[in-house]
């Protein structure tokens, strides 16, 4: 095939002013040294943190879609048969679990393995009780507002979506527990703990919006 060569016409020949000058070694190092202080590429920990926040923002939109479906389909309607005591109890349970998750992270930060283990276990336990509560709630809901009608649809999809997130949080915390037992957070990176706990808080905050959407409006 002919025609490979690119034309090097005078347009190009005249463009010598954009060619980078050969840096003198000293100059380059000096520039480098100055620039590093104002703006160095981030460490892997801060990269991870930024990434987690973006991930949480993304997840918010998923919940937002289902929450807006509730208002779109039903406006502010809500059936009288909702088990208000159970709903309130589950919400309190989840809020308390955020506290224990926070204490677990604190334990990891202080290199206190026992505190980390104790609080992680408590958080997992609270998470599991929450899931059982949701299961019990579902058995009641199936009778009063099954998923084949509008309120049941939004109720089961929202609580189900959230319960799936709780379950994944429990799995993450179980991994934290497993690794903590083997002393892997005693020295060095506790990012695994930090990420799982932040995720747990997010799942908790998501419920803070879902609970009124299902139980409290009007």
């Amino acid at each position: 095939m002919p025609g490979w060569t690119h034309k090097t016409d005078e347009t190009v020949q005249h463009m010598s002013d954009f060619v980078l000058p050969l840096p003198k070694h000293e100059t380059a190092v000096a520039v480098h040294g100055a620039a590093v202080h104002e703006h160095a590429p981030a460490s892997s920990l801060s990269r991870n943190r930024v990434g987690l926040w973006w991930f949480i923002l993304s997840e918010c939109f998923l919940f937002l879609a289902f929450i807006s479906a509730r208002y779109y389909l039903l406006g502010l309607e809500r059936p009288a048969e909702l088990n208000q005591a159970l709903g309130l109890g589950l919400s309190l349970l989840l809020l308390v679990s955020s506290l224990t998750a926070y204490r677990a992270e604190l334990g990891a930060q202080h290199g206190d393995r026992r505190r980390l283990l104790r609080n992680t276990a408590t958080t997992i336990l609270l998470g599991l009780v929450f899931l059982m509560g949701v299961g019990y709630e579902w058995s009641e809901a199936l009778v009063h507002f099954p998923p084949s009608e509008a309120f049941g649809t939004v109720f089961f999809s929202l609580t189900g979506l959230h319960a799936f997130h709780v379950l994944s949080g429990v799995v993450l915390l179980a991994l934290v527990y497993w690794n903590a037992r083997r002393g892997r957070y005693d020295s060095g990176s506790i990012w695994g703990v930090e990420a799982s706990v932040k995720y747990w808080h997010f799942v908790d905050v998501a419920w803070v919006f879902i609970y009124p959407t299902l139980y409290l409006v009007r």
Binding site: A69, L73, L74, P147, E149, A150, G152, T153, F156
Partner: peptide, 21 residues
């Protein structure tokens, strides 16, 4: 799969919801 009613108008759903989402 679960027999929900998001877009089934006969059961209180609304196909227009899908278009918005």
């Amino acid at each position: 799969l679960l027999g929900m009613a998001f877009f089934r108008a006969s059961a209180g759903g609304d196909p227009l919801l899908y278009q918005h989402v």
